[in-house]
Amino acid sequence: MDDLSALAQLRLVAIPRLAAGGRWRVEAMRAYSEPCLLWFTKGQGRITLAGQTRGYTANNAIFIPPGVMHGFEVGPQVFGTAVFFGRDSKVTLPKEPHHLRIRETFVAQELNITLDAIQREMDSDSPAHDRATRHYLGLLSVWLERQIAKAAPDVQKPDAARRLVARYTTLLEQEFRSGMGVAEFAASLGVTPTHLTRCCKQACNRPASALLHDRLIFEARRLLSETDLPVGLIAGSLGFTSPAYFTRAFQHQVGKSPSAFRRAP
């Protein structure tokens, strides 16, 4: 894919807009198929990234590679920008997730200026605006690399429990449609369901089953709101043994049936 096609996939979205249509769109566990940078400029909340829950505040930058499960709170006072780089981005980006707490004002301002410049060039019809966008994206890439290197000495290596939960969420993102339960996931990871749940509670204060159900119900909500697929087909595509079982599970978590959720404005 050429650079122009890759740039066409680039989007900058105000973080509050990500929750348009329901806060479940950001709070439930799910993964993107493209790299994403969340830059919070105001407010605070909690984010679960690769199975580990942390607090975030203003001037926090969170890089999420494709396929990494996450979910975060977006309260009414939370503002910032989400950068979606596209599936075919040519930008040099980290391979691992990172949560950066930016304490120097001038460093935060550097990122604000770069994001403003990217958006301005994307909106422009001036000559070479696409080339300017690529160059500003390169500066964003350099900013990320430098801040990750600066933070490295203070980053604690995850313990065994958190490493296990990260492996679980990676496998869960790959296999959540398979109908596997927590016992099958635990067996694939070489641990007992009890140990896996204990580690999940330690890392994100939620049992392993809650992460699985959250991921399934997010996908169900997405399919119900964005497609016309019959409820029975959605249930089958997500590994539920019957539409009735799917309906009970959905209603328990959402508070309304799949059909009622689809009809709601």
Results as ranks from 00 to 15, higher is better:
51 G>L: 05
55 G>P: 04
71 G>C: 07
52 Q>S: 15
49 L>P: 00
61 A>K: 00
59 N>A: 13
78 V>L: 14
84 F>D: 02
87 R>Y: 02
68 V>W: 06
48 T>Q: 12
69 M>H: 07
55 G>E: 13
65 P>H: 06
60 N>R: 01
57 T>R: 14
77 Q>S: 14
83 V>R: 02
65 P>W: 08
57 T>D: 11
80 G>K: 04
57 T>L: 10
50 A>P: 00
48 T>G: 09
65 P>E: 09
68 V>I: 15
55 G>A: 14
55 G>F: 09
60 N>H: 15
46 R>M: 12
63 F>I: 05
80 G>R: 02
77 Q>L: 14
64 I>V: 14
67 G>H: 11
79 F>G: 04
72 F>T: 04
57 T>V: 08
55 G>Q: 14
85 F>W: 00
77 Q>N: 14
82 A>R: 00
66 P>A: 13
76 P>G: 08
55 G>L: 10
48 T>M: 11
75 G>C: 10
72 F>S: 01
57 T>S: 11
63 F>A: 01
50 A>L: 03
79 F>N: 05
63 F>N: 05
69 M>Q: 14
45 G>W: 05
71 G>Y: 04
76 P>L: 05
69 M>I: 14
65 P>Y: 08
78 V>M: 12
85 F>Y: 11
53 T>H: 05
53 T>M: 15
52 Q>K: 15
47 I>C: 07
56 Y>R: 09
69 M>L: 13
53 T>Y: 03
87 R>A: 10
66 P>C: 13
48 T>C: 13
69 M>Y: 06
81 T>Q: 04
65 P>S: 10
64 I>C: 02
49 L>G: 03
59 N>T: 15
77 Q>Y: 09
85 F>C: 02
82 A>F: 00
66 P>T: 13
84 F>K: 04
50 A>W: 04
49 L>I: 04
64 I>K: 02
85 F>G: 00
58 A>L: 12
57 T>A: 11
65 P>M: 08
82 A>Y: 01
49 L>F: 02
45 G>L: 09
87 R>V: 02
50 A>H: 01
85 F>T: 00
61 A>Y: 00
79 F>V: 02
70 H>S: 06
76 P>K: 06
73 E>A: 12
50 A>R: 03
87 R>K: 13
56 Y>L: 07
52 Q>I: 15
52 Q>Y: 13
83 V>A: 03
78 V>H: 08
75 G>Q: 11
54 R>A: 12
60 N>Q: 08
67 G>F: 10
82 A>P: 01
65 P>C: 08
70 H>R: 06
46 R>Q: 12
65 P>Q: 10
68 V>T: 12
86 G>T: 09
73 E>N: 11
